[in-house]
Nucleic acid binder design. Sequence first.
DNA 1: CTCCTTTTGTTGAAAATTCAACAGAAATTT
DNA 2: AAATTTCTGTTGAATTTTCAACAAAAGGAG
Lengths: 220, 220
Amino acid sequence: MKKYLKVLKKCPLFTEIEEEDLLRMLVCLGARVEFFDKKYTVFSEGSPAKFIGIVLSGSVQIVQVDYYGNRSILSELSASEVFAEAFACAETPALPVSVIMCEPGEVMLIDCSHILHTCHNHCGFHQTLIFNLMKDLAMKTIIFHQRVEITSKRTTREKLLAYLNVQSQKAGKDSFDIPFDRQELADFLVVDRSGLSAEIGKLKKEGVIDVEKNHFTLLM
Amino acid sequence: MKKYLKVLKKCPLFTEIEEEDLLRMLVCLGARVEFFDKKYTVFSEGSPAKFIGIVLSGSVQIVQVDYYGNRSILSELSASEVFAEAFACAETPALPVSVIMCEPGEVMLIDCSHILHTCHNHCGFHQTLIFNLMKDLAMKTIIFHQRVEITSKRTTREKLLAYLNVQSQKAGKDSFDIPFDRQELADFLVVDRSGLSAEIGKLKKEGVIDVEKNHFTLLM
DNA sequence: CTCCTTTTGTTGAAAATTCAACAGAAATTT
DNA sequence: AAATTTCTGTTGAATTTTCAACAAAAGGAG
């Protein structure tokens, strides 16, 4: 497990926990690591939510597909980010989303019942873990709010600009990469891909943005 | 505070906490109760998030308004439900939403720093509180996912039907009330009110649903 | 390097949403 | 009980999105 320490220390689940404590803790929690190839389904919609996942390398997407085949992308997560924690904590009988490997890499899986139902009052690290989980879930809720704010816009243009503003703020720069290709961005914004392409073209021509593949620059 | 016990016991924040402990705890947390009239703004967008709110009576709406004046309704909460907890826990400098009193009533306010930063390791109730907060935030995240699932549909009809299905499941019946008037429902689903009215009319004519004001029945 | 697959931008037609405006119904106030 | 305000359903026109199809560009495999 030692080789994952660097990534894990950045994981919001483990803030305020020292390296050696962390290592012991992982054993106690029964954490295991698995490697997945690109496009592999780590968790699939409908299966029971038992595990919390942590991205160690590569990246994953959280995806929802309705019965018309419309895909919506909820988020893309990279190293040291946590996924499925809300469902695992709430002990949901069926996951409403799938988790797909986006860039091949390793994922740490922790059976959430080990966090929720064991040594409730004694172990100090355990309490810290619950506290961190709470903080993490609060943060996730806020990110969800941002998504709602973006997808609540009525037009493709407004959604795109709202998204780019959030990304720009997140990057702290006017110039930044986005983690989606065009189809994925469309699925995230809940719009049609061709319409999105057209809108990007317009904004470019109007001098509002500059685009080079996945690299965007806000000009005004 | 005694007269609020019945409502507070149903509050997800206080599960597993005995009445007398709860009363002492509320004092320790500096909880206070305020009455607000209909349409009163309890928290307003942009203000710092310091307090967790609990609806004691009446109801509140969580609302977001963009600079075009488009309102989107995130949720409506009634007695014993908690609001603003995510922002308070994450200590967000500026609330991204407003909380508006919908039906006049009382609200309990708890300064979240009293939950996050005090007697971290000692008091047992405190730990239970953090655990409950974590559970509550997990649940909120899941409700958010439902909202995303609904608003990710491409047409007014699909959004409406997805919403009604969720409400029906929640009620455990095919027949149920919704907490929104038409304009509010439109703002929740992110669609145009007149288009929504038209769609409701169609579904009624087609025999898919039955509607009487805010009471809906799924027929198929 | 070439072949094959995936991604992207463009098009035009069809479908759906939005917008503004209005009138009747329902609810609230005086 | 009358007057006023709010809510709802309807309309038609304008706008926007969606959909399907295609070709150029980019990327990957052998």
